[in-house]
Each structure stands twice: as structure tokens, then as C-alpha cells.
Design a protein around this nucleic acid. Structure first.
Lengths: 139, 139
DNA sequence: CTTTTTGCAAATCTTTTGCACTCTA
DNA sequence: TAGAGTGCAAAAGATTTGCAAAAAG
């Protein structure tokens, strides 16, 4: 079982608030930097600790970016298992429903004698905005 | 375009051979250790360099394990995009076909204005053997 | 010989930890 | 005031990189 933090601190709130505002996936360092820019005095370790906490509480979604670093975001759908279509460039993300992978996975598992199956599925792409920006600027 | 290595070296062959033999996903360090055990004199950096090379050439599949480390394996299906059902414990893996994610992903992408979509999908579980072992020993 | 590869150690990078100190309840 | 929570710097891991020496063609 996951136990909720017992105390409310300025730092914890700051992290939670930041996540509540932005809908993009971002890594711990970006979040830390953004908090600093706002004048919040928070240590990087604390950001990591609180992000981990929020993830455990199911209040924040975490996924592994292409580079292997963890990306965080607060999602609307807290209950159901869902996936994301994430912009490689800016981190903007759309929550998408699970295309009955659940069943498919379970069936495959049985077929091959596997148990306790879980799956990871993420879609990466370029969002309209970034795509436009790319055409204009570089390339 | 990816360019093939120009020279064949003992170390490169050793890495390729090891991958050709085993069907489990394993990380670079494990591969390095295994080569050493066999008496092969190879540096860790070289293992990393060659694994990266093999991945670029499409001869080896790489995926991010749960802990974020890269796992490597040589797959039978070199052509088609496919996924894996991997044992969390021993790394044993089964190649599974893509459950028309391709289309689903493309459709979603269009709907949300995303382009150049790619996806990652991996199934993790406990293989029959490891499951048995777990029941017997620990737990 | 020329150029690719290697080995090793040092450098990166992300994330975690130890520990004394600071707040919350 | 007790103990959760924090900051900072050090530690841990995984992977990369610089560079001189070794090997391939």
C-alpha cells in the first residue's frame, strides 16, 4: 500500500501546483529549473522525491522518454489505465484510450506461459505547432 | 543512411556471436560480463560501441527495461516492426506481432494534428520457469 | 602505411542517498 | 518537541568520450 505524505510543505505544493498548470510531459530537471525561475527555493533532490511520491499516489503519470529519462505529467484520467501521444519536441501530450491491449496481452501471456503481464505503450510524434515551427525555421 | 563497419574485429564478432546464441534480452554490462567469462578480452566501452552499431544496422533489437537501462537481443524478425513479451526476471522473450497499432496510431495522430508518429510497446511478465522458481524458493 | 577499433580512465547525466538541519503538526 | 521533510554534496549507475596504442586491410 502507498501511504500519503503526512505533512504539507511549501516545496511539495510548489511541485504539485506546477504540474497542475502545465499539460506537457517534462523531466525532473526541467521542473526543477522552472520552479527556480519562479523564485521557488527547492532542491533538485526534493523535486525528485516529491515527483516519486506523486507518482506512487497515482496523481502523476510518469513515462520513459526516448532518451531514457523519466518524464512527468499530471493527467486527467486518474482511474483508468491509459496511454499518451506525446510530442517529441515540446512534450505536449494527449491522453488516449487503451485499444484493448489488455485482453490481447492477457491472451498472449497465457499462450506463452507468462503471468503477471503488464505493458507499456506510448506514441511519440510531432505536434502541429512544432511541426509548423520546424518547417519555418530549420530543416 | 547507416554505414556498415568497415573492419571485422575479434571483439565485434564476439559480441555478435553471443547475441546470436542467446535469445534473452540483456543489458550491456551482462553481455560484457558474459564475454569475459568466456575468456574474451573485450572492454566495456567496446561492447557499448558495437551494440550501438548492431542496433543501427537493424541486426539487434534494443528496448528500455523497466529500470531505464537498455536491453539488447538479436531477433528473428528483422523486417517487420514487432514487439516483445519479455520476462522481467530472466529476460527471456517472445516476439509478438503488432496488433494493428500501426493504423490505430496513425489515425490518432491525424485526429490530433500530430505527424511522424512512432510507438513503443513492450509486454513484461514472468515466464513459466521463473514463475515456478518463484513459488518454490522465495515468497 | 593508413585508418578503423580498442582499452582505459575520465567525464557525463540522471537519479539516489547520507546526514545534519529545518520546519510542520 | 518529535519526526517528516529538505538541502547539499557525495555516491551510484549507465553510457559516452578523449586519446594513445593495437590491429585490420
Amino acid at each position: 500500500m502507498v501511504q500519503a505524505p503526512t505533512r504539507s510543505t511549501r516545496q511539495r505544493q510548489a511541485v504539485a501546483e506546477l504540474l497542475a498548470e502545465r499539460t506537457e510531459f517534462r523531466n525532473a530537471q526541467q521542473i526543477h529549473a522552472e520552479l527556480r525561475e519562479r523564485g521557488e527555493k527547492v532542491g533538485l533532490a526534493t523535486v525528485y522525491r516529491n515527483l516519486g511520491l506523486l507518482v506512487q499516489l497515482g496523481q502523476v503519470d510518469m513515462l520513459q522518454g526516448a532518451d531514457g529519462e523519466a518524464l512527468y505529467r499530471q493527467c486527467g484520467q486518474r482511474q483508468h489505465h491509459h496511454h499518451h501521444l506525446v510530442c517529441r519536441q515540446c512534450g505536449k501530450a494527449v491522453e488516449v484510450a487503451d485499444p484493448d491491449l489488455e485482453q490481447w496481452a492477457r491472451k498472449l501471456a497465457v499462450q506463452h506461459g507468462f503471468s503477471e503481464v503488464s505493458h507499456t505503450l506510448e506514441l511519440f510524434g510531432l505536434c502541429a505547432e512544432c511541426s509548423r515551427a520546424a518547417q519555418a525555421g530549420d530543416d
